[in-house]
Simulated scan of single mutants.
Amino acid sequence: MLARLAATATAAAALALPVAVAVPAAAQPVTPGTVTATRPLPPEHLIPGSASGTAISYRTLGPHDRPALSTGAVFVPSGEPPPGGWPVISWAHGAVGIADSCAPTVSGRIGGPYLGRWLSQGYAIVATDYVGLGTDGLHPYLDGRSEAHAVIDMVRAARAVEPSLSDRWITLGQSQGGLAAMVAATLAETHAPELDYRGTIALGVPSNIENLAALGGPLFPPLPLEGTTVFIAYALAGLRATDPGVDVDSYLSDRGKAVLTQVEELCYAEAADTIGSTSIGELFSRQVDEPLLRELREMLAVPVRGYDRPLFVGQGLFDTIVPSPLTFKLVADLALAGQKFTFRTYPQGHLETMLASEPEANEFARKVLTR
């Protein structure tokens, strides 16, 4: 509990640094994308090559489309913007944890050289933290709609504080962010019709997890994968906090309850070290049933329809975090649903695929943002 309070205090103190925009709480409209506060990022938190970096607090929609607050950052390239402004890439990050201290705008781990290379090509980068990372409440990890709304509304918020940004934008997501990016692709045109959404790049997308959820219970088979117990614990902890109508604890063993309490305060690397070899089965005291399964399906399902703009999906063949067979099923379902998309595989692991895909992802972005 002390660690949780300290992390919250750290995030609050960070947002209390020199504020350029601060709207009194009583006057704040609830329109998604409305900016509630800004602050300049310290130099050590900037993406390499940024002319400037600004942290933003903004309105969006959280679990079950309830009004919520998110934070994020906007980075502008050096030089003069092109006619119409800098085209925008809305970056959706992978798993970092669910504690406030894990939020990229708090930790400063926003994107590094990878996003710097995108910035150097003349794109502005806007990067959401997602709901509950650095804001009130616990982050609803892998809640696709919540994360997608944060990705979309981050573009709105960034354009409100940075007039050099174009209304042309794409979303780029990896791992957890790949899920966010794909759900955002199906919501972008209806949720933010005033923006010119052009397409999505989704890498290492965790999909079809909801189809495995029915196996959840003490006899869940061991998986030869990395980090799976931590990711499941993050998702259950987020669901427990954001939807108290589902009695998540009633499904958990004593070990499971202890693990969920631990991961609420630990970023990913610490959580993986702390949980150690705990299996998914050890989290549960009984088999999951329909009340929990229904919520997990709503959270985790990747849509297989609704992609009206270009879509690029990349997957590592040797990925031990998001295994390729689940992605093969996803792309088969997309094809059967009549969706048009580009699918590429790489003989790489999870993070390595993000780097290996750069040439093709860069070409995809150039085509959709300059047409």
Rank of each mutant, 00 (worst) to 15 (best):
122 G>R: 06
31 T>M: 04
107 S>P: 08
366 R>I: 04
208 N>P: 02
363 E>H: 12
225 L>R: 01
199 G>E: 08
300 L>Y: 11
100 D>I: 02
36 T>A: 03
23 V>A: 09
22 A>F: 10
202 A>Q: 13
124 A>N: 10
299 M>Y: 13
118 W>Y: 15
300 L>M: 13
249 D>E: 09
294 R>A: 15
162 E>V: 02
213 A>D: 08
48 P>D: 02
68 A>W: 07
196 D>P: 06
346 Y>G: 07
340 K>A: 14
186 T>K: 04
202 A>E: 12
157 A>V: 11
166 S>A: 12
316 G>P: 11
155 V>S: 11
36 T>W: 03
214 A>E: 03
88 V>W: 08
3 A>Y: 03
196 D>H: 14
107 S>H: 09
128 T>C: 06
37 A>N: 08
353 T>Q: 10
197 Y>C: 03
240 R>W: 00
233 A>S: 15
163 P>A: 08
56 I>V: 15
361 A>W: 10
287 Q>K: 15
51 A>W: 01
239 L>V: 00
296 L>R: 06
249 D>M: 00
92 A>L: 05
62 G>A: 10
284 F>D: 00
287 Q>P: 01
166 S>N: 11
121 Q>M: 13
63 P>C: 03
181 A>F: 05
319 D>F: 09
39 R>M: 04
264 E>A: 13
